[in-house]
């Protein structure tokens, strides 16, 4: 099963070429039963010191799919997300056991450069966090620091902003501070900034929780657009959002350790979003999605 999925990746990854854009998804609505995992967790445990935050996660994030991670607060979904691009490395004492495979390669392998992992697997955060620089410099920052060979930075900035559906709104004020934008625009700027370094996967940690409903809808529309080219993993507390944007949904919950009382997150159920919401196989999933806890 895994091998077959692996083969498919090879044939689907777009090859370098002018203007070639291969859409992995033939039509909206078609979704293979099994995700073609570009990013994959194999028995992943995440620890902070001696505290085990998440345990035993087996998950496949399908190529050009949106996968939502849902679950009550403290179930480790954000922790897991941050371990997918080694952002957790920055937390003192954090460590990951098990394997996180990106395109078949363990990102925690001894020879893997975390910097390159983060370039290939970008991240958008809960609170819009533009740099205190101009809009242009926010976009150009990533390509500059990662040493990307860029023919025209202006074109790259325009491309990234266009993909993030922000170009029309900011094209006349690229030199203005990013802080002059509204919260929703700032978040789209952060998405554009992530796109600019040409990642394969975009991780989003509750990207709409600080935004108003209208800005939220715009981000969700944008995610649908981005799905054509990127694989997206989103953590959300909003089940309707998960249902609106995600192809597949993973439900996490936490159980308390009998000895220490620490709460450890586990993956309860993973499947197509429609299936998770219409026919959840686990009682805890059904309880959570209809408000029994959290």
């Amino acid at each position: 099963m895994i091998d077959r999925a692996g083969e498919k990746i090879e044939s689907i990854v777009p090859h370098e070429g002018p203007g070639v854009r291969i859409n992995a998804r033939p039509a909206d609505g078609f979704l293979p039963d099994e995700p073609r995992g570009i990013l994959q967790c194999e028995n992943v445990d995440v620890y902070y010191g001696s505290f085990r935050a998440v345990t035993g996660v087996d998950l496949k994030f399908g190529l050009h799919e949106i996968t939502a991670l849902i679950g009550p607060s403290g179930c480790g979904k954000s922790t897991l997300l941050r371990s997918l691009n080694r952002m957790n490395d920055l937390v003192d004492g954090a460590r990951v056991e098990g394997r996180v495979l990106f395109d078949g390669e363990d990102i925690y392998g001894s020879k893997v450069d975390a910097i390159e992992v983060r370039r290939r697997i970008g991240m958008v955060f809960q609170k819009p966090n533009p740099f205190p620089k101009s809009i242009y410099d926010n976009i150009a920052y990533g390509p500059r620091v990662t040493g990307m060979r860029v023919d025209s930075m202006d074109d790259l900035v325009e491309e990234a902003l266009t993909k993030a559906a922000l170009w029309g709104e900011v094209k006349d004020k690229l030199k203005q501070s990013a802080y002059s934008l509204s919260g929703g625009q700032q978040q789209r700027l952060c998405i554009a900034r992530t796109i600019a370094v040409k990642p394969d996967v975009i991780l989003m940690d509750e990207p709409c929780s600080a935004l108003d409903p209208i800005a939220t809808v715009r981000i969700e529309d944008l995610m649908h657009e981005l799905r054509r080219e990127y694989t997206i993993v989103i953590v959300t507390h909003n089940m309707q959002q998960a249902a609106r944007v995600a192809d597949r949904t993973a439900f996490f919950t936490a159980f308390a350790d009998e000895g220490t009382g620490d709460r450890t997150g586990v993956l309860v159920e993973f499947g197509k979003t429609t299936q998770i919401f219409e026919h959840p196989t686990d009682q805890r999933t059904e309880d959570y999605i209809s408000g029994r806890f959290g």
Partner: peptide
């Protein structure tokens, strides 16, 4: 300086050193 700024920089593939020096 908010942690978000550092994280934003690092998540783009910047090194710790670049993040400190430029942000």
């Amino acid at each position: 300086v908010p942690t978000e700024i550092r994280e934003g920089s690092l998540a783009l593939g910047a090194t710790q050193w670049q993040t400190t020096w430029r942000q």
